[in-house]
Computed example of a mutant assay.
Amino acid sequence: MVTASIQARMGSTRLPGKVLLSIRGRRTIDLVRQRCEAASSVDHIVFTIGDESPNEAIIKWCDRNGHRYVVGPEEDLLARHRLSLDQTGDGTLVRVTGDCPFVPPSEIDRLVDRHSGNGETYTSNATDRMPVGTAVDVLDRSVLRELAERGETHPAVPLRESPDEWGSVIDDSAAWAELGAAHTAVDTPADYWALVDAVRAVGLDPREVTEWVAENR
């Protein structure tokens, strides 16, 4: 079974608190959750939250809305995502970030399907061709454990940098790469307001938002 693990923290140099900003009345991380929920391949959704005190706001939001979460080391993303799998007992993890409210559910399903049939330990669409904000990582529990044993703290960077060593498949989507100039992650104030304008113009569909941003940003 598959756990979607949404990493979230309040700290951000360029836009503090961005994961709790509102877009059309929904928190950024709630939109991410909705994308994961819309993916037919996902069985469980867990927010993985850093343990610094400002993140209490995310914890309270999860509690108020009945969402599952784990709390782990702020700077050790690998440890936090492993806690998500420990909570659900699943064998496969989908990693998405809490500042990507328009990550396509279709990409989650495509990559989980590709991962289940390729016999590898890591499958991702994270390339320079894809729009920023569409990245999805799919990982086996076993590779997360091996990364931890080697002292790594990031669940994806080593796998992307040494794909042959780790058995990684990097598989971007031609359908989304044609919009590669778009930026739909909430990284800066300008990103946030562009998404607010996009949603006002076309609604909340990830494809339509990405197309609007590509044409108007």
Rank of each mutant, 00 (worst) to 15 (best):
E37C: 00
A181L: 13
A190F: 11
R110Q: 07
S124T: 15
T127L: 09
D191V: 00
P101L: 00
Y69I: 10
H81Y: 07
P158Q: 05
S142Y: 04
E165F: 13
V202L: 13
G25E: 09
T184W: 02
G119D: 09
N55K: 01
E107K: 06
S5W: 04
D191P: 05
Y69T: 12
A79F: 08
G119V: 12
T153G: 01
W212H: 10
A174S: 11
P16K: 09
R141V: 11
P101K: 02
R26H: 11
A126F: 14
V94L: 03
V103H: 04
R160H: 13
D172C: 12
D191M: 00
A198P: 00
G98I: 05
R68A: 15
K18H: 13
L195H: 07
F102D: 02
V213C: 03
D205Q: 06
F102R: 02
F47H: 12
T3G: 07
A148T: 10
L78I: 06
R129H: 13
G17F: 09
N55R: 01
H115V: 12
S173H: 08
A39K: 06
T48Q: 09
A174R: 10
P155L: 08
P54R: 11
P155M: 11
A126T: 14
T28L: 08
T88E: 00
R110F: 03
D164F: 03
G133K: 14
P54L: 11
P131E: 13
A79V: 11
V46W: 02
A181G: 14
V209N: 03
T92A: 00
E146I: 10
D51N: 15
R95N: 12
H154I: 05
L77Y: 09
R207T: 13
T184G: 00
I58F: 04
A4H: 03
D197G: 07
R129T: 12
Y122M: 13
A190G: 14
V186Q: 02
Y69N: 07
P163Q: 01
D140I: 06
A126D: 13
A156M: 09
E56W: 00
S124C: 09
V42M: 04
R150Q: 13
A135E: 13
L159M: 09
Y69M: 05
A177H: 06
T28Y: 00
Y69S: 04
